[in-house]
């Protein structure tokens, strides 16, 4: 396996509270990696460090390195980094504009203005996010009129439209109903051929269902990382075993 993102001795503090403690982890390319662990274990913080969304938080201090495709992410232009490492958030957050404009937002940001190109990108992104058939007749309608599940797939389409290499997903189904959840899971599995997906999830069944690799975080530490199948069937660390068998968390 070839790593696309590598974290080395990554520590992060919010003010004086340490949220990540010497995380060293290689994310394999074109696969789905699930980050699991109880609330406050640092999995979301780790995810947000990968595309520097933590820059927005005040009083953050980071040591250690994160490289994406061999480049130090903290030395890369942040907008360029986020173009290549896209993100889907926990709560669907479409902009209060039309479905078309939502998907076209990213490409426009990165300088694509020709209508023909945009039309094509928007359609392709919506198809890839398995929502094209539902919205093709109302592309000009406000995106906030869609259901929660549709909004989340729209947000995935919006992220895909800038052609990222990596897609970070922060509990993308936790605000959705079971049917929408299974559609998104199906979609994520289809996307892994072309994208590397890193997904934070609270739901261990979901991690088993969709991911190839799983990382278990606890109290800011990376306890265990491995192929999902072996991590869930033969955990090496006692704490992993306790967590996945439901003894805490």
């Amino acid at each position: 396996m070839k790593p696309i993102i590598t974290a080395k001795d990554l520590c992060l503090w919010y003010g004086s509270a340490q949220a990540l403690d010497h995380i060293t982890l290689d994310i394999p390319e074109n696969s789905i990696t699930a980050l699991i662990g109880p609330s406050g274990c640092g999995k979301s913080t780790f995810l947000k460090t990968l595309n520097r969304m933590n820059d927005l938080v005040e009083g953050v201090k980071i040591t250690g390195t994160v490289t994406y495709a061999g480049k130090d992410v903290f030395a890369t232009d942040v907008n360029q980094l986020r173009k290549e490492v896209g993100m889907v958030f926990q709560k669907p957050n479409p902009f209060p504009m039309s479905i078309y404009d939502n998907v076209a937002y990213g490409p426009r940001t990165h300088g694509i203005t020709a209508k023909k190109d945009l039309d094509q990108i928007v359609e392709q992104a919506l198809r890839d996010a398995a929502i094209w058939d539902e919205v093709k007749d109302r592309l000009k309608k406000n995106a906030l009129g869609l259901s929660g599940g549709q909004q989340q797939r729209l947000c995935i389409a919006r992220a895909l439209a800038v052609a990222p290499k990596v897609l970070l997903m922060d509990e993308p189904t936790s605000a959705l109903d079971p049917i929408s959840t299974s559609r998104i899971e199906e979609l994520v599995t289809q996307l892994k051929d072309r994208y590397t997906i890193i997904m934070v999830t609270h739901n261990m069944q979901q991690a088993v269902r969709v991911s190839d690799y799983t990382a278990f975080f606890l109290l800011g530490e990376l306890v265990e990382f491995g192929a999902t199948e072996s991590l869930f069937s033969q955990p090496v660390d006692r704490r992993t075993e306790d967590y996945i068998t439901g003894r805490f968390g």
Partner: peptide, 27 residues
Amino acid sequence: VPQSYREGAFGLGAGKWRTIRTVVLPG
């Protein structure tokens, strides 16, 4: 204006001014 709009725009690689102009101000 919800913080999630700003995050959404930043997450797509939009700079601060573009985010404000296209997402925050219309709101």
